[in-house]
Computed example of a mutant assay.
Amino acid sequence: TPVRVDFVEGGAAHRRLYGGGSGQMIAKAVGVAQGVRPRVLDATAGLGKDAFVLASLGCEMSLIERQPLIGALLEDGLARGAEDFEVAPIVARMRLLKGNSIEVMRDWEGEPPQVIYLDPMFPHREKTALVKKEMRLFRPLVGDDPDAPALLAAALALASHRVVVKRPRKAPCIEGVKPSHALDGKSSRYDIYPKKALKS
């Protein structure tokens, strides 16, 4: 079956309806709380799944995807989402930006995002369970993210309140500044780099 971005049906719909709302770990990591819905830049948007979850919780999202083919899939998914009665208000909070994430962050104009979310391509693992179809398709296109340290540095320079990095649970932190703390899940964790407190 084809790979496409679908915010209306399938996994996105299930997570929107039954995913646990603001109790989800990603929501806690970016600072969603009572009266707090930060402006978030997802600088490694991919298929937009995490950004859609945060937008469905009320966060204003900017997304950057540097791989043009994946960016085109994302653009198509956002356009179809905008035609759905229930999903349209959510994708209206998602703004897609084109270009290299590091350059876009370094050249940012206007009010900076409060939170920057990074989910760089996980280091390639041998002898592991078969990864999802999307990832099997994308790895030859995208490769690993050897510039993850530069991505983190650019994010830390731009974000006004915090940077959040998603990592495999047992993977080392990205080289550079160390996170102050992390939220651990079953297979992944969120490294958190705070700059100042988010307030309602």
Rank of each mutant, 00 (worst) to 15 (best):
T1G: 15
R167F: 03
T44Q: 09
R15V: 03
D119E: 12
D42E: 10
R106Y: 06
L183A: 10
K195L: 14
H124D: 14
I116T: 04
A33F: 04
R93L: 10
S180A: 14
A29E: 11
M105E: 08
V5I: 09
Q34H: 13
I70C: 12
D76Q: 14
G77P: 03
E111L: 09
D191Q: 07
E111R: 13
K199I: 12
S180R: 14
P112M: 04
Y117E: 06
I192K: 08
V163C: 10
P140C: 05
K28G: 12
D191T: 10
D42N: 12
I90E: 07
L141C: 05
V142M: 15
K195M: 13
V30E: 01
V87F: 02
H181R: 15
A154Q: 05
K199A: 12
D107H: 12
D145E: 15
F85C: 04
K49N: 13
M25I: 15
Q24N: 06
A29S: 10
L130P: 08
Q24C: 10
A51M: 10
K199Y: 08
H161D: 13
G31K: 02
L74D: 04
P179N: 05
G58C: 04
A153I: 02
L130V: 14
P179Q: 08
L96R: 13
C59P: 02
L73D: 07
K199G: 11
S56A: 14
M94Q: 06
D42H: 08
F52N: 05
F85T: 08
K132R: 15
A182K: 13
R169W: 06
K28L: 11
T1A: 12
K132W: 08
L54H: 08
R189M: 00
I192Q: 00
A72R: 13
C173A: 10
V53D: 08
G81Y: 09
K166L: 14
D76L: 02
V3T: 14
K186T: 04
H161P: 06
D191E: 13
G48N: 04
A154R: 03
